[in-house]
Amino acid sequence: MNYGIVIVSHVPELAQGLPKLLQQVAKDVPITAAGGTDDDEIGTSVTKIMTAFADNPADELLTFYDLGSAKMNLELASEMSDKPIHLYDTALVESAYSAAALLEAGVKLPEIEAQLAPLKIK
């Protein structure tokens, strides 16, 4: 089982920018992102999230998001996806960075989740 990361943000630039930070410490972890609405306005898109799930070569995905409605669309998309999706209500930048670094180091999921637990803020 290999794991990937999906970032979901209301802002296209935020979704494109954060993977750059993660890739610095996790060059082998597949990271995809979905930012903004279908028209690249501020918001989130189930279609874009589904694409980020499909484009990510990993079998199982850890997902991180910015604000509330991104979570709702993430949940909708994960109900429609065949891949197992894990959703974390954690501080976006810090927790995605932490997960990326730990995945790169080959740390197992339960241990990663234990590290993410204190970063839960929503």
Partner: peptide, 12 residues
């Protein structure tokens, strides 16, 4: 609604 509304009202 799910595919065209960008905010929280779409999924809700």
């Amino acid at each position: 609604l799910i595919t065209k509304v960008g905010g929280a009202s779409g999924p809700l």
